[in-house]
Write a protein that binds this DNA or RNA. Sequence first.
DNA 1: TTGAAAGCGCTAACAT
DNA 2: ATGTTAGCGCTTTCAA
Lengths: 322, 322
Amino acid sequence: MKDVASAAGVALKTVSRVVNGEPGVHPATADRVRAAIDRLGYSRNESARVLRRGRTSTVGLVIEDVADPFYAGLGRAVESVAADHGCLLLSGSSNEDPARERELVRTFCARRVDGLIVVPAGHDHSYLRPELAAGTVAVFADRPPGPGIDVDTVLTDNAGGAALATRHLLAHGHTRIAFLGDAPSIFTAAQRLHGYRTALGRLYDERLVAMAPPALDTVRDALERMLALDRPPTAVFTGNGRLTVTALRALAGRRMAVVGFDDFELSDLLRPAVTVVAQDPARMGRVAAELLFRRLAGDTGPAEHPVLPVSLIPRGSGELPP
Amino acid sequence: MKDVASAAGVALKTVSRVVNGEPGVHPATADRVRAAIDRLGYSRNESARVLRRGRTSTVGLVIEDVADPFYAGLGRAVESVAADHGCLLLSGSSNEDPARERELVRTFCARRVDGLIVVPAGHDHSYLRPELAAGTVAVFADRPPGPGIDVDTVLTDNAGGAALATRHLLAHGHTRIAFLGDAPSIFTAAQRLHGYRTALGRLYDERLVAMAPPALDTVRDALERMLALDRPPTAVFTGNGRLTVTALRALAGRRMAVVGFDDFELSDLLRPAVTVVAQDPARMGRVAAELLFRRLAGDTGPAEHPVLPVSLIPRGSGELPP
DNA sequence: TTGAAAGCGCTAACAT
DNA sequence: ATGTTAGCGCTTTCAA
């Protein structure tokens, strides 16, 4: 910048004004400065700017896995909103590991991101308190923060969606409905189990429930075990997209009604096509990002906790009779 | 840091030494400093560090769409390698728009990323020359840079893979094989067309080729047109994952042999299961990132151009007879 | 083993 | 409309 200034025969500050589009520079001077900038191939050093201004125009995103379609869709929406606000996105995968989540958050904070969108892996976020006190804005998505931390949080209506799916199967005549959920320590998995259980009422039978991370062997074993019962299930409700796919593989063509939580690509091309309770990951990302930027713009109202609706998409697999 | 220093009764520099794990600090002093750090909740300001050291420990990734499964897998691998080197990932989607690609690259460079991994949307990268001269390391992936820019570039064996797919269909008795490819301006699409054409030799018939971005209507129209020919195609080779899915939808159960470029989730669950020529996006990301970090470590050898192999996975759809 | 001083490149505040 | 100065928080260099 100093070089540009002397090349253009002006002071440092004038170059700064031109670079930042500040008013009060004579057009001719500005042209001279711009010419010098082009000639020298100058580009502003953002690190210095950040240091001086205290704002990085960067948002940090911590998700479980950037390659998971659900979180990728969420990340895409966050990126898009961030771009609208002139912000860049730093993203990292926690791999469902609380320690990694925390490390990512700390790293992002050390880099002074303006804000943070977190899909938490862990249940204790007290480590965030100093950062929040220092002015970093955090928004949680998909899962709430641990106790004692009250920040904006965007959730899906997990229990409602699970109840919707379960009632759909009940309405089609099923009374023995299995539930395959993810590890119960995961908030969404627990909520969906709750919705399923509530909808079933007295029909609930714990032998028809299996909660574990998606793995073909585990799911296959669980299904075998259930199908060997006196009164085996005639339908299965799967608690997330990956479990739905895993269950379909494990069922290997066995005729059984299936409703899955989460929509997924190609669900319509399978035979039967797969009935799902669909979330909208892009909307979740958008809502979370908009909440974040509203805070960054100075909104200091109480923490908001929007809950996004789900929709049941009947495609065939959930309408099979017992 | 100043506060920590005075709280611990030492000089600024000693705190810096402790924070950076530099040798030559008395253990007792270091303990006092660490105690002060904990008490004050101090964390190093990375912006200032970056400004002073000139290295950001950040890598920029420009891809077409962070939510596309292929690029998401690539991004995941890049993130993982970057994490191994203590680097964070800034990522952005170009949406196949050269202007946006360029803007992202400029923004990343202005933030002084240590290196850049680019899946280019455009064909002119002369804008990169000043950045490269200034010491920014760039690695291209999936598609090469435009003329005049010679940097490390990781490609897939597109022509070879397309020829492999085409010969597979030929071997199963097809002589009328259609090709649905993406816009011919996309490097990979052009390469795959070339491989298809080479493998077909005198059997090539331009009426069996349609090159356009994946859209259900376009693909359906193209297929209708081809199927209405005197000698309609009995097989179709689709030029990327999205086109494969789109074509399957457009075919809507019509019996026709299909081989797709790119593997995709659930390809094995469709009936018939879909035969594909599979790339390895994670490997591409890993190779590109490793190349990048080798350069950052000081390797100044000539630009490398690894070409990754593909593998044919027969699953059923590509083995249907004419 | 420890510290003092300079300065990375920029912007904010205050002249002129 | 333009310029001067201070200083963001750290690391580097040199000195003690």
